[in-house]
């Protein structure tokens, strides 16, 4: 049986300032080679969790083991084997992008030639060629973020821990970053731990998801199984004939639970064993039932996230 990369047990972190309980008895494992997403609203305790996993801060109680090593007892050994990209902007601002990456690689123990080769490859992959010879301090916020991600990727490490890696990036660059992360994971078998509150983006990337809120682990499972948790029922979104929503609502009520979404939009929840029959009925009698269009909505990771506890906080934030 393969050994877990991280084993987190009863991890609790209470900050001395203010006595905030940022993590509360978290127990979780990270498997080698997987991409694990840590999701949760702002202030949920995600960053605190990974700062403890990367030995940046000490837990108040509980343990974290990295391949059997106690992270708090052997921090340097652990830091050697993983790369952490914090939310803070990249620190080396006086060097050019290329030199900054080479120096970072060298500080990670790489030979000069290896660091140079790796830096050049990353510059090309992250489309930073134009700013390769520009000082990092002169780059835009998004470009600095990309350089920070490249710096995390430059070392040959077993695990990558990325805290909100796509913040401050435009949609094209965000997609590029996800692609690069997945590529690293597939090609080099690097385990990736992603901290994000961007549920929709994370869905296409992660293998498993840990949902955290109020410092607690609310759920940890594969994306598919978390989605299954959301609802056993099929969701069908129906667009009604304008002005005839009541007719449609009456007709659909006999098939399942109906939720009104808007002036001419309804959502129908149907038990999966009856789904086929309901869809047949919609196809056959749609006009009569004042249903112009319908589409089946599969449960998303966002639904799972909301179900597990993110909803209330997001609602307040939003």
């Amino acid at each position: 049986m393969m050994r877990n990369l991280f084993e987190v047990r009863e991890l609790t972190k209470i900050y001395r300032k203010g006595g905030v309980r940022a993590n509360d008895r978290i127990c979780m494992d990270v498997r080698p080679g997987e991409i694990l997403g840590i999701l949760g609203p702002n202030g949920a305790g995600k960053s605190t969790l990974i700062k403890q996993m990367t030995a940046m801060i000490a837990p108040t109680s509980g343990t974290i083991r990295y391949l059997g090593r106690n992270v708090t007892a052997e921090p340097l050994e652990v830091v050697r084997r993983l790369s952490y990209c914090a939310q803070d902007p990249y620190a080396i601002t006086s060097l050019t992008t290329r030199d900054a990456l080479v120096y970072t690689g060298r500080l990670r123990g790489m030979s000069p030639s290896d660091a140079r080769a790796r830096a050049c490859a990353l510059i090309a992959r992250l489309q930073l060629e134009e700013v390769a010879h520009t000082r990092v301090g002169r780059l835009s916020g998004g470009q600095v973020k990309l350089v920070g991600i490249a710096a995390a990727l430059v070392g040959r490490v077993e695990a990558l821990i990325l805290d909100e890696p796509t913040n401050a990036l435009d949609p094209a660059k965000r997609r590029l970053v996800w692609d690069v992360i997945v590529q690293r994971n597939r090609e080099e078998g690097t385990t990736v731990i992603l901290v994000t509150h961007n549920v929709l983006e994370a869905e296409g990337v992660v293998d498993r998801v840990a949902v955290i809120d109020y410092g607690r682990l609310l759920g940890l499972d594969s994306v598919g199984r978390l989605k299954d948790m959301v609802d056993e029922r099929l969701r069908i979104e129906v667009t009604c004939t304008f002005g005839r929503r009541c007719v449609a609502e009456r007709a659909l009520k006999g098939m399942g639970f109906v939720e009104v979404l808007g002036e001419n939009r309804l959502r129908l929840y149907v038990d999966r064993d009856r789904a086929g029959r309901v869809l047949d009925q919609l196809v056959a009698n749609g006009e009569e039932m004042a249903c112009e269009e319908y589409k089946v909505i599969p449960p998303s990771l966002e639904d799972a996230y909301f179900l597990l506890g993110g909803k209330e906080r997001i609602g307040h934030a939003g």
């Binding site: 830091v79 790369s83 952490y84 914090a86 803070d88 620190a91 080396i92 500080l107 990670r108 710096a151």
Partner: peptide, 17 residues
């Protein structure tokens, strides 16, 4: 300034003393 910008966190995350 460096402390506020979190620069030291970057260095602390590297395997250096």
């Amino acid at each position: 300034r460096q402390r506020e910008k979190g620069h030291f966190t970057f260095y602390a995350s590297l395997p250096i003393s």
